[in-house]
Amino acid sequence: MKVLILCTGNSCRSQMAHGFLQSFNPELTVCSAGTEASGKLNQQAVAAMKEIGLDISHHTSDSVEKYLNDEWDYVITVCGGANESCPAFTGKVKHRLHIGFDDPSHAVGTDEFIWSEFIRVRDEIKERFWKFYTEEVKPQL
């Protein structure tokens, strides 16, 4: 099964979702991409995942263009805020889903508050992608 996770910058939320989904089942083909890929990972997202034992530091921030010619079982957008537009995927895909999250990289305030936002969003991503995996993916395997 092939799953592509999309957001705008492909540096934070999509990377965490990618890490979780791959950890639930290493047999899945999971990729992530962005419509305006930043080319680098958000280091606080990497640290938040490392804190719970998942290493995403080897991931790359890729443009969605890289995956347009592939076929996907699922394409999932993870953009969240009302000011943020979700990317559209024009490639071949069986199921399109939206599972939205706030972008912790836009949090402002103290270092402690910003870190707490990364942890909150990380935990939300884990919970919602576990639900997706157990309810949508696992029954098809």
Rank of each mutant, 00 (worst) to 15 (best):
F20I: 01
S14G: 03
V30R: 04
P26T: 08
K50H: 11
F24C: 10
G19A: 04
M49L: 13
E27A: 15
L41V: 06
I52Y: 02
T35V: 14
G39F: 14
S57Y: 05
A37I: 04
N42Q: 06
G39E: 12
S14C: 04
A37P: 10
F20R: 05
E36D: 13
A17R: 03
C12R: 14
A37W: 03
L21H: 08
N10S: 11
M16A: 09
A17V: 07
H58I: 00
P26M: 03
C12N: 13
N25I: 02
I56H: 05
Q15W: 01
L28Q: 03
A48D: 05
R13T: 03
L54E: 03
S23V: 00
E36A: 10
N42R: 01
A48N: 01
S38H: 13
Q44G: 04
H18Q: 14
R13W: 09
I52M: 07
N25P: 04
K50F: 04
T35Q: 08
N25F: 02
N25E: 11
S11R: 08
Q22N: 04
Q44L: 12
V30G: 11
N10D: 03
Q44T: 12
K50Y: 00
L41S: 07
S38M: 15
N42S: 09
E27F: 10
M49A: 07
T29I: 15
E51G: 06
A17N: 09
M49F: 13
V46D: 09
S57E: 05
P26Q: 12
I52G: 03
N42K: 06
S14A: 08
K40Y: 15
S57A: 12
H58E: 09
F24N: 05
E51N: 15
L41G: 06
Q15P: 06
S11A: 15
G34S: 00
A17T: 10
K50I: 01
S23Y: 02
N42F: 13
G53A: 02
E27W: 04
S32I: 05
I52C: 05
K40T: 12
A37T: 01
V46C: 08
Q44M: 13
G19D: 09
V30H: 02
H58P: 00
N10A: 05
